[in-house]
Design a protein around this nucleic acid. Structure first.
Length: 205
DNA sequence: CCCATGATGCCCT
DNA sequence: GGGCATCATGGGT
């Protein structure tokens, strides 16, 4: 069952948490790529120094965040990686959830080609984990790029559907890679499935 | 295990 | 021109 727009039109922290265990689907070139979402981060517009929309900043790049919920916000970071976000809340409120890790479910051979230009049986165990255990990596594996920025997740190309097993414990933690964000760097806005190998980073306590 | 570094391009000031 | 919601690699411990 594909998630409907109502799912995304809610509190961003709740959406971030409830996206765990759901299945990200990308239909491309007649192939189906699927992965279970295992790690997310919430970015809360106006009050959140780590968000692109902090303080109500409105530029061409972040415009999608101000739009209606249930669309993809995909941007380039460090010149070479695409990061996938899901826009939440009603039009005018610039919030989103970053997908930071997925566990491959379908089309794994295709993901191996996308990431390493090798077939799945040529990969080491470490490379298999490395297929999708990070926001830049999963975009490469799932073939997500610039042209999908603004894509409606209530359409048929890129969407999220219900998962099958929803029994897991959730860890809440600080977000990754936002040391510049002053007090916001410690906000507990990161969520992941306890024990899952495709979580990008486990912080030691 | 940890830390340092380079790659590389777009956005925004 | 500075900086970035990252990753791969290479060295040390």
């Amino acid at each position: 069952m594909k998630l409907k727009r109502d799912f995304y039109n809610r509190d961003t922290l709740i959406v971030a948490e409830e996206l765990l265990g759901k299945t990200l689907v990308h239909n491309i070139n007649g192939k189906v790529l699927k992965g279970k979402i295992v790690e997310t981060e919430a970015y809360l517009g106006v009050i959140d120094k780590a968000a692109h929309s902090y303080g109500g900043k409105r530029t061409p790049r972040v415009e999608i965040m101000y739009g209606f919920p249930g669309r993809a916000y995909i941007y380039i970071i460090y010149g070479m990686y695409y990061l996938l976000n899901v826009v939440t809340k009603e039009e005018g409120i610039p919030e989103a959830v970053l997908i930071r890790g997925i566990q491959p479910l379908e089309g794994i051979g295709e993901m191996a080609l996308n990431r390493y230009k090798k077939s799945l049986d040529e990969l080491t165990k470490k490379q298999i984990i490395n297929l999708t255990n990070g926001p830049g990596k999963l975009s490469k594996a799932m073939n997500l790029e610039k042209s999908l920025n603004g894509e409606d997740l209530c359409g048929d190309r890129l969407y999220i559907e219900e998962g099958s097993n929803n029994k897991f414990d959730i860890i809440t933690d600080k977000r990754i890679g936002i040391d510049y964000a002053e007090e916001a760097k410690d906000f507990p806005f990161r969520f992941y499935i306890e024990g899952n190998k495709y979580v990008s980073k486990i912080l030691k306590k």
